[in-house]
Design a protein around this nucleic acid. Structure first.
Lengths: 356, 356
DNA sequence: GAACGTAGCAGAATCGATTCTGCCACGCAA
DNA sequence: TTGCGTGGCAGAATCGATTCTGCTACGTTC
């Protein structure tokens, strides 16, 4: 009978092949042997825990790097009870690929992905989960919830199983919760409105959506405040969250019937802004001379419209990265600054400034 | 049946708080005790391995379900040498959020995410990785590479560390590799061209991109074949992969100068098609009466254009799900059918058929 | 009736990290 | 000199699953 091979120290002559056996990665034990130290010392040296002689530490780090040591995530996780991954849910409600602001969300996820990767953690894309049972099947160390609206089932599910949460924009259902990352929407909206006024507008209308998320709600509120402060009558309409071209055109139509006719429009989303500009082209209404248009969110489509649309860049990659950072701080129980506000910038383009 | 207390007595009055202690999940040992069986038997019963008496098996499954047992992923992974996650890289090259076909990619990732979740595996979003070292920091069980072009560094990196790969569309750099999922692009292109001809077109032009990915290359090739078969002169132009509105308008301009002027355009991407239709509106060229337009990829923007654009729906969610399935089969060494072709459907709309 | 094979299960080893426990040597104070 | 505290490290326990080994009871075959 052949004695069971307890794993030889021999080099695998063919390391490229995804062997049928266990992958022959360098273990902490190998580092310890090569450095002439105990496993515990190597672990302490690499993690900065315990007390290790500086000389010993140096030697261990050198050996580990030479051997190309990478800790086994499962072993570490088993001991520390960490999954080594964060979750991100781009939509907590919509079925299929019906995510609302596609470009924003993809850039958001990209930024979060990079930030997690830098910490050697995985960012996993979670499908919409509604119940505690579903959420319990794949438990990340923490979760980022985007596009969250009132009474969100996903938030409740993760709350119940004790997974730390950070939301993108404040959760309208939990106004006291400070663990969120997003924009200073009131300020951004006012900046946009001020810009429109500075370009000569006198009657500024507003097109938002009927979504109940914080961004949408806050922006509309800020618009009304801004108007009231100036003694202007607000002229606001909303489109359904599907924001189809037709719906946007109809909303625009309602605004154009107003008397006096607005000479500027603050459109909350890129999709609305693009549809509005296109429709104005069809109606032969000159942008920006007869009507200025500004978008509350920037992206390719706004930048490439004809004319290019002035837009507020919310920097979604930064938002994603900040969400990951805040989430780790929450997981680790650190009492850091929150919420985390990402400053937006206004990209002035022809739709408000005319040909440059 | 006795209500078995997993772990020690319940001393956490605030289950929402992420406890500082180890999470109190049910372990296989708890199931074994409650069912009066050995851990090994429970494991065999749950995994369908070894030989377990049907009665015992039944009892164990019942107990496990009652206790809400969910296996610890780290412990399992440590033993089986699996990460329990797949990676997906939406762009192997572009920096930042410059993914090309945003809507397609987000739906692709959504489909893959669901499919992985159903197997209790995580789908992790990987940032663009170019080197073996980068890829070694976070090693998934397998990886899906989308938007792959010739001489792709990401493919090489994962190949070197032995991570199984499935690509979205064939890898133009490895034509013999069959582990890919995608569309039957030649057939789809011909279907679109046939549709244009069936609606009365006689001179069909083509606008593609200069990307070197298989989809782009194959479609252009199919167009030329199709023309040759019919003795028609191909009229094809390309736009840079940025596909800005301006670039698309210029490409269209070149086509309109041709004599005879085309009466139909096959536009490869949704972005091109939308830009073309908009530009035609500006030029007062009637769609579809003077010029029919068809898009090689469907999405919201095509469906909501004015007029709505006939488009080929590539069913990206299905592609993503199939990619996950094929990847698992590759990981498990199964010799299953490959490549996996997802049948596309043609959504006929007004841009070719006129008002319905 | 003895020998043998096998289904079913219990017990223990194992994966590779972190972390607890305890030993040793050394420095300093009494 | 003796005693005590402590830095540094070795050894071993531990996390929770899978899987190997071997025992027992039962049936079958000669």
């Amino acid at each position: 009978m052949i004695a069971p091979m307890p794993r030889t120290a021999d080099e695998n002559p063919n390391p490229n092949q995804s062997g049928n056996g266990r992958s022959q990665r360098v273990r902490i034990r190998d580092v310890a042997e090569a450095a002439g130290a105990a496993q515990s010392t190597v672990s302490n040296a690499l993690n900065g825990t315990g007390s290790v002689d500086p000389g010993t530490r140096e030697r261990i780090l050198k050996v580990a790097s030479e051997l190309g040591y990478v800790p086994n995530r499962n072993a570490r996780g088993l001991r520390t009870d960490r999954a080594g991954m964060l979750g991100i849910m781009l939509s907590t409600r919509s079925e299929a690929g019906e995510v609302a602001n596609v470009a924003y969300n993809l850039r958001l996820a990209g930024g979060a992905s990079r930030a997690a990767f830098r910490r050697q953690n995985a960012l996993t894309l979670l499908p919409p989960l509604r119940t505690r049972e579903e959420a319990g099947l794949l438990v990340p160390d923490g979760v980022i919830l985007a596009d969250i609206e009132v009474d969100d089932l996903a938030r409740a599910a993760f709350d119940e199983i004790g997974v730390p949460i950070v939301t993108i924009e404040a959760d309208p259902g939990s106004p006291d919760e400070a663990y969120w990352v997003g924009a200073d929407t009131p300020t951004n909206t006012r900046t946009g409105l001020d810009h429109l006024m500075a370009t000569g507008a006198t009657t500024i209308a507003y097109i938002g959506t009927d979504a109940t998320g914080t961004w949408s709600v806050q922006s509309a509120k800020a618009y009304h405040h801004w108007c009231r402060e100036r003694g202007l009558e607000p002229v606001a309409v909303t489109v359904p969250r599907t924001q189809t071209v037709r719906e946007c055109a109809e909303a625009l139509g309602r605004l154009l019937q107003r008397d006096p006719r607005p000479d500027a429009i603050f459109a909350l989303t890129e999709k609305i802004a693009v549809s509005v500009v296109r429709r104005l082209g069809e109606l032969d209404i000159s942008v920006p001379h007869e009507l200025r248009v500004l978008s509350g969110s920037d992206g390719d489509h706004a930048a490439q419209a004809l004319p290019p649309i002035t837009a507020i860049d919310l920097h979604p990659e930064e938002v994603g990265a900040a969400a990951v950072a805040l989430l780790y701080e929450r997981i680790e129980g650190l009492d850091t600054e929150r919420p985390r506000i990402i400053r937006a910038t206004l990209n002035a383009r022809e739709s408000t400034t005319g040909r440059l």
